[in-house]
Amino acid sequence: MLDQLIHLKVNGTLHTVAVPPHRTLLEVLREQLGYTGTKRACRVGDCGACTVIIDGKAVLSCLTLAVEVQEKEILTIEALGDGDRPDLLQQSFVDCGAVQCGFCTPGMVLSAKALLDENPQPEREEVRRAIAGNLCRCTGYAKIVEAIEDAATRLS
């Protein structure tokens, strides 16, 4: 199949990129656009490590075709702060010890961001529900939940 020229708006920047239809958004973000903060773990929708935000909703980039998300607002972890200047949510993750190996972290942060953007003062249950699709082996999740609640408090 021939490559198609598609336009992807990632973190506010419009990229024009040639891709065949069978490329997932995850592959295009990582392999062609260099957004390696989006992690490639299970690749079949089981773990949430590749979570990105599209039009305000957390979705899995491993199950999304790149060609079908043109004209949409795609946010990856790179849209938030960088290592020197983390945004408030990322800072809460760091301060609360919600980061260990860090492989689930970008997806986890984005699931949390999608929640807080929509619901700045979530209940505990809403926090848990928002990250229930993001697996973490290191932390046991308690500090992740704490970090998101901490960010919600600091945001208010």
């Binding site: 989006t38 960088d82 860090g102 972290t105 942060v109």
Partner: peptide, 9 residues
């Protein structure tokens, strides 16, 4: 290494 991990870098 928390900040770089949280930043995805």
């Amino acid at each position: 290494d928390g900040p770089v991990k949280a930043a995805g870098t």
